[in-house]
Each structure stands twice: as structure tokens, then as C-alpha cells.
């Protein structure tokens, strides 16, 4: 998947994205980072086709994504949004079954393939013993896994996640990131996500895209992107960057730069 000179603006005055050109590596985890308002969610929105760029183009498998039929696109790319709502009395398996929508005819009962995909998605996200539970009875971390299961049931090669860890306790944040890594390693899913926490991004990404003021400032592996200079430039922070055998690369902020 690639973006060519994409520009997007919410209000036609300020560009929320300007001249972004990037190619998303297949079968890899790519993480978009940047300060608030830097355009990282906007970038994800363009990839997800929720936002259509005013200029430039987003291309998937050689075809401009705006030219895909909605259902066709939903068989290529699934999205887990940051905030999700569902009727509170919906059960896990019913919610996950919505993921089969792009593959089914609305008024037909679900087929064998659909049931298998739902079972598979539920077991991938480790929700087997919760499948009859209602959404309202689940914890935030479990609920987030249900939404991922729904996206998995779409059986797409690409999965986008918008700040999947934001509202979770630390344990569930890492549980979720481990799940993302597992999905990438075992299924070869192409994953693009937005993360707030830099150390999580370093730890769980193959590539990082660094946004600031609607521009893509840096891209590359965590080692290439994260250094004291770039952190000062992007976040206005003085940081110390270390690497050791057990932790890998990590960053500790030590103050704001003047």
C-alpha cells in the first residue's frame, strides 16, 4: 500500500496532511507516532479510506483506494477504531460475526465459511470461553480484543489500529501489543497502527512513521528514527536513549528543551 503526495485538509485552510509520500511495507508492523494534532490519526484515516485526500493518491494493489467498492475494500483492509460503541446486550460472537459482512449477502443465513472465520477470530484473540458473554460484562482490555476479533473475521491481509492501547491499563496494553505481534508473526498480516507511547512503538514496530504538523518528517526502523536530535525536533523534549540486551532500545525523557 502506498501514498503519493497526499494532502488532506478538514477545513480547506490548514493542511492536516501535506505532501505525504510513503510506502507501507507488506507483512510488517508500521507504527505512526507524533505529538497531538500532528496528523497521525488523519494519516491512518486516509489509509482506512475514511478521509479522501484532496490531492495525491492512496494506492492499494495497484488501484486507487477510492475506486474500490466498499465491500471489496473491506475484504482487503480492516480497521479497529479508537472508540467503539455497540449495543450493550450484544454478545461477543454476534459482534465478531459483523466482521463477515463484506463476505456475505445480508439476507442469507451465515455459511460454513463465515462460522469458521468467526470461530477462528475468537480463538486467535483468546476469547473462546467468553463468546456468549455480553459486551457490557467485559473489561476494557477484553472489549478491545473483541473489536480486533471482528476485524480479523473480515479475513483481510491488512489491519489498521487507531491508538489501540489508549484507554487500557498497562497489563492490557502489553497484552494487546503482544497479540498484534502474534498476528503479524503467525499470519503475516500487514499492520499499521497509531501509538502514543514511544517505547511501545520502538518495541513493537518494524518501521516507524514520524508525523509533525501534517508532514511526514522521518521514516525508518526504530533505530533509524529515534535519536536525541529527532525527539527534540518532534516533541521538544530532551531525552536519553539507551539500549541494553534485555530491553532493546529505549528512551527516557529528562526534561523539556528550551
Amino acid at each position: 500500500m502506498e501514498l503519493k503526495q497526499v494532502a488532506f485538509s478538514y477545513n480547506k485552510q490548514v493542511n492536516s496532511l501535506s505532501d505525504v509520500t510513503v510506502s507501507i511495507a507488506s507483512n510488517r508492523i508500521t507504527t505512526i507516532i507524533g505529538p497531538n494534532g500532528s496528523g497521525k490519526s488523519t494519516l491512518l484515516g486516509v489509509l482506512a479510506r475514511h478521509l479522501l485526500p484532496q490531492s495525491g493518491s492512496a494506492i492499494l494493489d495497484g488501484k486507487v483506494i477510492a475506486d474500490y467498492k466498499p465491500r471489496e475494500f473491506a475484504r482487503k483492509l480492516a480497521v479497529v477504531h479508537q472508540m467503539n460503541e455497540a449495543p450493550s446486550d450484544l454478545t461477543v460472537e454476534k459482534l465478531v460475526a459483523f466482521g463477515r459482512m463484506p463476505h456475505r449477502t445480508m439476507w442469507m443465513p451465515s455459511g460454513k465459511e463465515d462460522d469458521e472465520a468467526v470461530d477462528w477470530a475468537i480463538s486467535m484473540t483468546n476469547l473462546q470461553d467468553k463468546r456468549k458473554k455480553r459486551i457490557s460484562e467485559m473489561s476494557g482490555g477484553e472489549r478491545q480484543r473483541v473489536w480486533i476479533a471482528m476485524a480479523l473475521a473480515q479475513r483481510t491481509p491488512i489491519l489498521l489500529l487507531d491508538e489501540p492501547t489508549t484507554f487500557l491499563d498497562m497489563y492490557y496494553q502489553y497484552e494487546l501489543l503482544e497479540l498484534v505481534r502474534k498476528l503479524n508473526a503467525s499470519l503475516g498480516l500487514t499492520i499499521v497502527m497509531v501509538l502514543h507511547d514511544l517505547n511501545q512503538a520502538i518495541r513493537y514496530s518494524d518501521y516507524m512513521l514520524v508525523m509533525k504538523d501534517g508532514e511526514l518528517l522521518h521514516q525508518g526502523t526504530p533505530e533509524q528514527v529515534v535519536n536525541e536530535q529527532s525527539m527534540k525536533q518532534i516533541y521538544g523534549m530532551n531525552v536519553v536513549i539507551r539500549s541494553d540486551e534485555r530491553t532493546g532500545l529505549y528512551m527516557v525523557p529528562v526534561g523539556i528543551s528550551e
Binding site: 482506512a48 479510506r49 475514511h50 467498492k69 466498499p70 465491500r71 471489496e72 475494500f73 473491506a74 475484504r75 480492516a78 480497521v79 477504531h81 472508540m83 467503539n84 460503541e85 455497540a86 449495543p87 459483523f98 466482521g99 459482512m101 463484506p102 476485524a151 473480515q154
Partner: peptide
């Protein structure tokens, strides 16, 4: 009953 964004991502 899901959100618009979700419904859109599901191909609606």
C-alpha cells in the same frame, strides 16, 4: 447500531 466509522469499515 455500531458507529458510522465501523459500519463503513465493514463495507457498508
Amino acid at each position: 447500531a455500531l458507529q458510522d466509522k465501523t459500519a463503513g469499515s465493514l463495507g457498508m
